[in-house]
Design a protein around this nucleic acid. Structure first.
Lengths: 158, 158
DNA sequence: TTACCTGCAAAGTATTTGCGCGTTC
DNA sequence: GAACGCGCAAATACTTTGCAGGTAA
C-alpha cells in the first residue's frame, strides 16, 4: 500500500506530526471498503491500540478531510462517514440498509471538466449521490409486501 | 400555490390527518428558497403558531420525506436540511458558508434515464452534489490570503 | 526543548421517544 | 368515538472542547 509512505511524506511537509494514532487511522481508512463511521474506525484502531480515544479519532478524521487525505461522505445525515479514496468518484447508497458503494462515472466528471465556475460559484469538486435499494433489501421489501397482501401478518384486517 | 391543495388531497388518500401543524410545515417548506434546517422551519412555523414544538417539526419533516412531500438534502453533515422541491434537481453547496443552491442539469438526469438498475442496485433517484465557493466567500478567502502575504496580520512571522 | 498531540471527562448540539391530553375524521 | 397527532420533558446519540500530561521532531 503505497499511500502510507506518501502519507508520511505529506505530513512531514505540512508539519503534521506522524503519530501512531494518525497512522492507525489512515491505515483503517485505506483498508476499509465501506465508508466507515467514526465509531467503526475507532473500533478498528483499537484492535491494536486499545487506549485510543474516540475524540481523537474524530479530531484526526476532520483534520484528514481538511488536508485532503480523506473525504467526508454524504449520507443523508445518519452519522458522518469517511472515505479514504480521494479520487473523483460517485456513490450509490442503499436507502434501507445505508450501505454505500463507490462507482466511477467518467461521463459525469466530464460534464464539469474544464469548468472552473458555475454562475457565481467557484467549483471545487462534485459527486453524484445515487439513492437505490441493494439486492438484499430488494428481496426483503418483496417479502414484506408478499406477507401483507397474503394476509399472513399478525393483524390481517382493519 | 397549487401544491397546498394537492397536499391536502394526498394526505386524505393516505390517511394522514391534515393538522394545522402539518399545514404550517408544508407552507414554510414551499415558501423557503434556502433548504431550511429543522430549527429554521420551526421558527417560521412559530411565527403564526407559537406553541408548536420542535419535536413535532422533526416528526413531520421525516414523515414528509417518507411519503415524498419533501426531500432531505445532503449537506456533508452539518445538520439535516429539507427541500420542498421534490422534482429532480441538483445542488451547489458553498463549503464555507454552507448555503445551498438548486440547479437543473438535465444532462445528468439523462445519464441515468431509463435505467432501472445499476449492478445489483435498484435505482430510485440521484442528485449531483457540487462543492464550491460562493462569490461572497471567494472574496473573503482572497482577503484573508492578501492579508497573510502582505504581513498585515497581527502575527507577521514565526 | 518546544510545539504539537492525546486521553479523559464534561459540555454542547441535534434528534428521538414516552406519555397523557387534544384533535381530526 | 376511536385513532391518530401533539406538546412537553426526558433520553439518546453524536460530536466538540478544555486541560494536564505525554510525545514527535
Amino acid at each position: 500500500m503505497r499511500r502510507l509512505g506518501e502519507f508520511v511524506a505529506r505530513c512531514r511537509e505540512r508539519g503534521i506530526a506522524v503519530t501512531p494514532q494518525r497512522l492507525a487511522v489512515i491505515r483503517a481508512l485505506l483498508a476499509s471498503e465501506n465508508h466507515p463511521s467514526t465509531d467503526e474506525i475507532c473500533a478498528a484502531v483499537r484492535r491494536r491500540h486499545p487506549h485510543v480515544s474516540l475524540a481523537t479519532v474524530h479530531r484526526i478524521l476532520e483534520q484528514f478531510c481538511e488536508v485532503g487525505e480523506a473525504r467526508k461522505v454524504t449520507l443523508l445525515h445518519d452519522v458522518a462517514r469517511y472515505d479514504g479514496n480521494v479520487e473523483p468518484h460517485h456513490h450509490v447508497l442503499c436507502v434501507r440498509c445505508r450501505r454505500v458503494h463507490d462507482i466511477e462515472m467518467p461521463e459525469v466528471d466530464k460534464l464539469l471538466e474544464g469548468k472552473t465556475n458555475l454562475g457565481q460559484f467557484a467549483l471545487l469538486r462534485c459527486s453524484l449521490e445515487i439513492e437505490a435499494l441493494c439486492e438484499r433489501c430488494q428481496l426483503a421489501e418483496k417479502r414484506m409486501h408478499a406477507q401483507r397482501s397474503h394476509h399472513i401478518n399478525p393483524r390481517p384486517a382493519e
